[in-house]
Each structure stands twice: as structure tokens, then as C-alpha cells.
Design a protein around this nucleic acid. Structure first.
Ligand SMILES: NC(=O)c1ccc[n+]([C@@H]2O[C@H](COP(=O)([O-])OP(=O)(O)OC[C@H]3O[C@@H](n4cnc5c(N)ncnc54)[C@H](O)[C@@H]3O)[C@@H](O)[C@H]2O)c1
Ligand SMILES: NC(=O)c1ccc[n+]([C@@H]2O[C@H](COP(=O)([O-])OP(=O)(O)OC[C@H]3O[C@@H](n4cnc5c(N)ncnc54)[C@H](O)[C@@H]3O)[C@@H](O)[C@H]2O)c1
Lengths: 229, 229
DNA sequence: AGGAGTTTGTGAACGTGAGAACAAAATGGG
DNA sequence: CCCATTTTGTTCTCACGTTCACAAACTCCT
């Protein structure tokens, strides 16, 4: 017999699935916005840009929220995914390093609409501290601890230069932040129990360049090769 | 017998490895900058934040560039990886959508230093066109074709709102761009042969939130549970 | 009510990736 | 010159992720 409590600890969701759930959430929101109340796995898979079998398998890890022969109720499924991810509540976030990128992040409205609230912008440079960015005053990096305690912040964003990233991460971890999103092109080491995700523009471009080069070489080979055909 | 030519078409590098090569490249550059001329797989693995067995396996797909008992020559390996990725040459790039994010990207120096050259900034809004951003004048989106032909651009960056992303991608593809880096939170469909990579801040945060929630629930369960132990 | 038609949820097959372990190849000391 | 030591390159095994294929479950029409 399987106990099915709502906080079933045994139910573990594969990492690859977790990474796709936000995509499904977004696709469901788009469907709901166009007034669609029900959709099949095929519809949703198309909207999310994945294969429908994969979608169904992913959703099956959450539970059985569809109806055979009918499909999924858009709002209901959306709520279930949001609950699973944890974005039915609001997550307070701090951003450290208010340079070019930090400004853009501070001005980004997508945070708020997706369950995240920027509670503070921090920077080490005196020239930046005190500036008002997106209606929020930039505070000194030293205030990190105070802010984190006050708002019970668990998620920190690093948008400093690469050299500062490890220091900032260390401070964050020391103060109790357990999830870090790192935009600096640097490997940051953190203790067990702390999650770091990195977003790295250069790496993405280099991956594209690799495939681009392969395409070019392939075309070249084909031209040399198949020219006489 | 295995033919080993330098342009061996049969040699295929796993996607997971391709995604790590830029990380190794960066770590090697950091080592070179600190004056280190030789390193073991262990050293490099530590710098890159991976396991040394994985590093050696990854490098083995490129060829046999180390010396047993000694390690790798930093500069030589760096060159080999750069060549494999295709960043020994310069890749021209266009950025479309010069809003908050587009500004940050335009000002980002990491492009240039990693083999990418921003040849144009494009926007559809008249209020933005003509502005000078990072010393480059923003041009109308309509100029895309002209610019792409002139500079032989293969890589395009989308930093427009989500609703415009598919349209922009379609235009890019029609004109001959075959690699797209998409920052807009939207699924863009492209024909076979075109690569799209997406960078999505909200998804990253939501993945962190999921794990954060699990940590919280786990702690809660442990507190309820193990309190009596 | 019953059967035809849909669509989900999942078991099983397949492919890719990670890591341990070790043989092969190089160095350096005696 | 030979042997101990170091470190690479590769093989083997296991885990994870993707896709197929189909039974189970539901709706709707007659
Ligand atoms: N600009 C982009 O589009 C872009 C794109 C991808 C990655 N990045 C990366 O993001 C990071 C930020 O880029 P940017 O262009 O905004 O750089 P930037 O130099 O404009 O801004 C960095 C900010 O961090 C602050 N800072 C420096 N050290 C600090 C510390 N120890 N504590 C707190 N704040 C500190 C600086 O005062 C500055 O305001 C860099 O690592 C960059 O490589 C930027
Ligand atoms: N700002 C951020 O930090 C951030 C972070 C993550 C993701 N994003 C995403 O990146 C995208 C850009 O964000 P932003 O904050 O810079 O938005 P923004 O509104 O400031 O800028 C968007 C720009 O795109 C231009 N544009 C609109 N339609 C266009 C079209 N069809 N062709 C060419 N240009 C067009 C607009 O004129 C505007 O200048 C959005 O999709 C956003 O969700 C932004």
C-alpha cells in the first residue's frame, strides 16, 4: 500500500524534470491568458517546446492531475506546478553588484510577476551606493546581514565582477543564504546544502560558436565532396 | 586502423562535454594569468569545479594533448580547446532589443575578450534608434538583413519582450542566421539546422526556489520528527 | 447501455553521461 | 640502465534521462 500524503517525502522529482516545470508553468499561463481552460498533453507540449511523452512523464512525477480522454484543466495544473515549485509564496531576493547587469535585473519586471521580490540592491562602491535604481536605493554591501535577517532572505543574486564573486558568495553563505544565482563568469565553491546556479552568457555563445563551426565545416566538406556529384 | 586527421569528421563530441569546454577554457586562462605553465588534470578540474576523471574524459574527445606523468601545457591546451570551440576566430554578433538588458549586453566587455564582436545593435522603437549605446549607434530593426550580409553574421541575440521573440527569430532565420541566443521568456520555434539556446532568469530562480522549498520542508519534517530523538 | 474514439499514465527499451579503476606512458633517482 | 612514481587516456559499470508503445480510464454518440 502506498501512502499518498500531500507532503510525501518519498516522492522525488528528477532534476531534469524540475528544470522543465517552470517552462510548463509559463506555457500554461500563456494558454490561460488566451482564454483556454483545458488542454491536452499534446497542446501543452507544443506550447512548451517539448515532446508530449516527456511532458506526461514529467507531470506524472507530481501526481495524476489530468483526466484521460480529456486532458488537463489549465488553471488547476498551473496551481499544482506552482505549488510544487514553491512559487505560490513570494521569495525575497537580494541582488549584489549594481553595475550594467545589476541595473537591468533591478528593472526587470519579470521577477515580481513570477513569485520573487527584490528586497534590496547592494554594492560595494561608494559611487553606486545611494543611487536610486528602479525606485530602490542601493545600499552598502555591509548591510547584507541586516537585510537578510530582516526579510528572511534565502536567495541571493551575484552580479559583481568575477574576481569578487567568491567573496560575495562566502559572505552570503556565512549569513545564511542557501541559494545563489551567479552571473559572474567564475566558479564559486560553496558548502554542502547550498545551491548555486550559474548563468553565463559567454559559455552560451561559445556553445553556439562550436555548433556554428561544425555546420560551416560540414558544408565545406560537402562542397568539396559532393561538388562532383 | 583509425585514421587520425586533424579535421576528422567522425570525431563527435558529446553535448555535455561541449558545454564544459568553455569552462575549462576560462579556468586555463585564469591559470595562465597567474603564471602557471603546466597543470595536472586534478589542478584544472579543481579550477573548473568538476571531477578530474570527467575532465580527462572530456579532453580525450579532443585528442591526446597531455603528457603522462606530467600533465597539460596550459597554453597549448588552451589553444586546442579554443580551436575546437571555434573561438580562435572572431564571431560577429547582432543584438536585437536594446532595452534594459540590451544596454547591459552592449556594455559587456566579456564579449570581445572571448571571441565575439558586436557588429550592430538593433531596435524597433523610434525612441531607441539613433541613441548611442556603448559607443555604437542603435539602428532600426529593418537594417538587419543589410548588416547580416555585410558582416556575414551567423549569431543573433534576442533581448526583446517575449511577444516579439518569435517574430524576431523568424526574421533572423529568413536572413540566414543559424544560431540564436534568446533572453526572452518565450519558446521560439526554428527550422532544422538552426540552433537556439535560451537564457532564462526566472527559470533559474524557480529551480532554486524548488530546492529551497524542499530544504525548508525537510528541516520542518526533521524538526517535527527528530525533536524527540 | 454499449461501443467507438480520445487521451492519460506508465512500463520497458534505448541512449547518453558520470565515475571508478586501471593499464600505458612519461619522469627522475640510484 | 632499471625501477619507483606520477599522471594520462580509456574501459567498464551504473545511474539518469528520453522515447516508444500500450493498457487503463474517461467522454460522447447512438
Ligand atoms: N553586462 C552584461 O551584460 C553581462 C553579461 C553577462 C555576464 N556579466 C557578468 O556580470 C557581472 C556584472 O557585469 P556588469 O557589466 O554589470 O559589471 P559592472 O562592472 O558594470 O558592475 C559590477 C558592480 O559590482 C560592484 N562590485 C564590485 N565588487 C563588489 C563587491 N565585492 N561587493 C559588492 N559589489 C561589488 C561594482 O561596484 C559594480 O557596481 C560580471 O561578472 C560580468 O562578467 C555581465
Ligand atoms: N531586464 C532584465 O534583467 C531581464 C532579465 C531576464 C530576462 N529578460 C528578458 O529580456 C527581454 C528584454 O528585457 P528588457 O528588460 O531589456 O525589456 P525592455 O522592454 O527594456 O526592452 C525591450 C526592447 O526591445 C525593443 N523591441 C520590442 N519589440 C521589438 C521588435 N519586434 N524588434 C526589435 N526590437 C523590439 C523595445 O523597443 C525595447 O527597446 C525581455 O523578454 C525580458 O523578459 C530581461
Amino acid at each position: 500500500m502506498t501512502t499518498r500524503s500531500s507532503t510525501d517525502a518519498a516522492r522525488v522529482i528528477p532534476e531534469a524534470t524540475v528544470a522543465r516545470l517552470p517552462v510548463y508553468l509559463r506555457a500554461l499561463t500563456a494558454l490561460a491568458d488566451s482564454g483556454i481552460r483545458t488542454c491536452s498533453s499534446e497542446d501543452l507540449a507544443t506550447a512548451a517546446g517539448v515532446n508530449s511523452a516527456k511532458l506526461r512523464k514529467d507531470l506524472s512525477y507530481l501526481g495524476s492531475y489530468g483526466t484521460r480522454g480529456v486532458g488537463y484543466d489549465v488553471d488547476y495544473l498551473r496551481y499544482q506546478i506552482a505549488r510544487e515549485i514553491g512559487v505560490t509564496q513570494d521569495w525575497p531576493v537580494v541582488i549584489v553588484g549594481i553595475g550594467n547587469l545589476g541595473h537591468a535585473l533591478a528593472n526587470y519586471s519579470g521577477f515580481r510577476s513570477r513569485g520573487f521580490r527584490v528586497v534590496a540592491l547592494l554594492d560595494a562602491a561608494e559611487s553606486v551606493v545611494g543611487q536610486s535604481v528602479a525606485g530602490v536605493v542601493v545600499r552598502p554591501f555591509d548591510h547584507l546581514e541586516e537585510i537578510v535577517r530582516e526579510h528572511d532572505v534565502a536567495i541571493g543574486v551575484i552580479a559583481t565582477p568575477a574576481v569578487a564573486a567568491q567573496d560575495v558568495a562566502d559572505r552570503m553563505v556565512a549569513i545564511g543564504i542557501t541559494s545563489i544565482l551567479n552571473f559572474a563568469p567564475a566558479v564559486v565553491a560553496v558548502p554542502e546544502g547550498v545551491d548555486v546556479r550559474k548563468v553565463d552568457l559567454s559559455i552560451e555563445l561559445q556553445i553556439l560558436a562550436y555548433h556554428e563551426q561544425r555546420k560551416a565545416n560540414g558544408a565545406e566538406a560537402a562542397a568539396t565532396d559532393g561538388g562532383a556529384a
